[in-house]
Design a binder for these strands. Sequence first.
RNA 1: GGUCCGGUAGCUCAGUUGGAUAGAGCAUCAGCCUUCUAAGCUGAGGGUCAUUGGUUCGAAUCCAAUCCGGAUCACCA
Length: 596
Amino acid sequence: MSVISLLQECTVASLSKLYQKPFTSKDFQVNQTKPEFEGDYTVVLFSLVKSLKLSPDAIGQQLGAELLASYPGYFSAFNLIKGFLNITVKDDFWTGLLEKHYNDTGYGKRARNGRKVMVEYSSPNTNKPLHLGHLRNNFLGWSVAEILKANGYEVIKSCIVNDRGIHICKSMIAWQLFADGATPQSTGIKGDHFVGDYYVRFNDAYKQQVEVLVEGGMTKEEAEKEAPIMKATQQMLLDWEAGKPEVMELWKTMNGWVYAGFDVTYKRIGSDFDKTYYESDTYLLGKDIVQQGLDKKVFYQKEDGSIWIDLTADGLDEKIVQRKDGTSVYITQDIGLALQKYEQYGIDQSIYVIGNEQNYHMKVLQLICQKLGMPNAGNIFHLSYGMVELTTGKMKSREGTVVDADDLVEEMIATSRKHTEELGKVKDFTPDELTVLYETIGLGAMKFYLLRVDPKKTMVFNPEESIDFHGFTGPFIQYTHARIKSILRKMETEPSPTTERSAPEVSLFKAEKELLVILEQYPTVLEQSCQEHDPSVLANYIFGLAKQFNSFYSEHSVANAENPEKKILRTKLSQMTAHVLKSGMQLLGIGVPDRM
RNA sequence: GGUCCGGUAGCUCAGUUGGAUAGAGCAUCAGCCUUCUAAGCUGAGGGUCAUUGGUUCGAAUCCAAUCCGGAUCACCA
């Protein structure tokens, strides 16, 4: 049990005893005490004033005294300032926590709870390489999945690849027209970039053709429809749907190039999936559901044959689920896939990591699933995240203002190499060790940068300033971990009996206790970041812990502690901090080096 | 126009179901390496929490209105 719930329970009991009536933990608030005051946690008394008809001061005095009298094992002091009852938790409690967990690498994690969750994330289009926005999605999805695991869920990471449709046909047409048989192999260009280049070529050519047609007297709208390259693309889409062999052949080949490229990127950034769906397999799903929905009268048919759902009662609009020609629309296959996920895996919850531009779409999807009476439809959760924008505005692939994922990764690794070389602390590393270190630090900086922000919020990336390695960053935390490891290496070589129990009467300095107070919160933070599907909660916490450790580090020496008890205490403190830093960073997908 | 999201220091961001004098990092300035890694530590300056009103012991937080920015409302995906 966390200190905060402990204090809540003790307060409830004390209040009931003092005033002879029932209380719950909701009758008052417990906060962490502000640093400028004496104490660890604070009971806010104002909310009790009315019902007890007593002054905050009177309640505080009585409650404080009662807490100390009834729970001498937990609380050692209290003070009362303007309606805030500040409680000091006994040093024994903190050292007891340390004894219990200093060598516990699983600290904060929970046992299996028997629940199964699917996290769908990444979901790229196969016509262009990954960019910064995809990175946010990938890091978020991966981290949320790991956080769920740490909280006892069984997790299936999934990905739906948007491998068919007009977008990939654009790249295919452009390749036919302009490539002259070139391949990634013949040009030495990574497959996803190679295909992406033809997507750009398509847009250039298209734009040019539209201009010519407009000059010839067409309206822009007409020209956009009539441009030969666009017509060819639409024909190709029809040919694809008809299964025309040479189109299928080209489609497979070009997607193959893209996948080869994606594989490299995914491997490097650490994304992995238990199940990959392909839209070419799923785009026909949901058709029979439409019929069932019609029978259940959830959907209705218009005279022209198109099928709709009326969501106006739910504050939304009417939404089409099948075209008049009988073909399905985007949402139809989503319904089908949603059902398939439940049927295949028996999941309790289905999480979709998708940008907030699709909030409406996802709302519609969930609503339809619910109205169709699909199992666990209420547990569809759209983890909606904000766009990554640049200081110059939004990223637009057509205007070439996207930050490419591979480029950014390279840049981060190069920067980490530069910093590391300048500092010159790892000159004895082998080339292989150095490669690993540079990647760990560079990727760590990038991942932390994207994960430390509340997922829901739009965030701004400034490409002019590279991502920082100081302050509230991944490398700061990695560095803190490396520092601790350095201490622990030193301790190992000494005959110091670190397994011996430290004297319980050893009193704690402020910096030592502060560290324990933060360490104690880790399980709670882990749970919170899980409930809120929010890795930034964890990231902020880890930073606070690392900061506190550095503060402690500069104030107190571990190796040259005042006495053996302190030396043991601080060694354990360092050890536990290292474990929590490592565990927390691991859940963000970031490694922590032993030296850097 | 309807719906939804956002607006906190020069910049990037925290700020728990309302709680003490609104916090970090970067940037700026001033200190700290003969002592466990200075990718660090300590301190200073920097705020009309978009605006106005309301709710109450108390509001960045809740409510209403207004201003600004964004997303979305396709027989596109």
